[in-house]
Write a protein that binds this DNA or RNA. Structure first.
Lengths: 182, 182
DNA sequence: GGGGTCATGTAAACAGTTACATGATTTT
DNA sequence: AAAATCATGTAACTGTTTACATGACCCC
């Protein structure tokens, strides 16, 4: 078999829930997996073409939609299982906020506090979006529902950790900058 | 000025602490920034060459080391400040573990528990390495020391959040898989 | 009919890793 | 003398984003 591709895994997984157009698959990835995954059109369409060629996906004319939707073939479902069993590919870390904070001495405490406040704000927004996602998932009755809630919970734990860290760090920064300014 | 580059920012920042060879810069990035940043040789050497050409870095023969080390020029330090002031570039999320868990129904609770246990193990390891880093940083007397501790704390909060989430999730998974197996 | 969204795709540019090649120095 | 580490670099490949081009369909 061809070597594992992250994008193909995500596309196969998205289509496993229900047949979709490429456009809708991207929508689903942005809205439902957006907290921990991302794909661009420039990735999705070539991936779909490859999957179609490999017989893992077929285009069918669905009753409801005007465009043809892409549906997993049995081989596609097998391939999905195979890809899900592959070891997780770790993406190299790249946290620009922490990089700036590490060298915080260069910009000073005030600029650092800005960075931390920004991170705090993003965590609040994340928490709000996750609350919506949780309500949505709890209303569902789907075999995947418990798993959806687990990923929501992962986001909530991470966001709350960011909030706690941000408060602690803003305090430390004010103690660094405050005495000099006061 | 040339458009901002993440790699050049990291290299300039690393060299701002002390002049280093490219090899040592990579070592420093892996060991000191490794929790939230990464660069490969294939990025660092071309970046150093560009920085040298732009007059932001100069190669000097240091007393201690056999090879020439790279040192920031005054223009290089200005450029570092400029790059640190640039807005943080968010890297698109790609969490293979959560992707698999989201579609956990396909592989089943036992395989999911493996994934979560793996994440838990990594968080424990991270916590141990951060404890070392904290001890090291606390022993230092450097203007950047408080900032180092803030980044260490960020890692600690995140790792502890992962532990708490993993325990909660393993519990939920056992309740999913347990009754079926028992 | 005009503007927005749905839908599919391609091309260019960019970012990044991996593997390879080379050689000096240090350690064993 | 051999092996490990330090040190620098290049080339090929892969992955990814962005911008562009195109057109159907839907609502106002």
């Amino acid at each position: 078999m061809a070597k594992p591709s992250q994008t193909e895994l995500a596309v196969l997984a998205a289509l496993s829930v229900r047949p979709m157009t490429g456009y809708a698959a991207r929508e689903a990835i942005v809205t439902e997996l957006g907290m921990f995954w991302s794909e661009s059109f420039g990735q999705i369409y070539p991936a779909l073409a490859r999957l179609r060629e490999a017989g893992l996906v077929e285009a069918v004319q669905a009753q409801g939609s005007r465009s043809a939707v892409h549906r997993l073939t049995p081989a596609g479902r097998e391939r999905l299982v195979e890809l899900l069993r592959e070891p997780v590919v770790a993406s190299p870390p790249r946290n620009g906020m922490l990089l700036r904070l590490f060298f915080g001495d260069v910009l000073g405490p005030a600029a650092c506090a800005e960075l931390v406040l920004d991170a705090r704000r993003r965590a609040e927004e994340t928490l709000a979006r996750l609350a919506d996602a949780r309500r949505g998932a709890e209303a569902e009755n789907h075999p995947q529902q418990p798993y959806w809630l687990m990923t929501v919970s992962a986001g909530e734990h991470a966001a709350r950790a960011t909030l706690a860290w941000a408060d602690e760090t803003l305090d430390a920064l004010s103690r660094l900058g405050g005495p000099a300014a006061g």
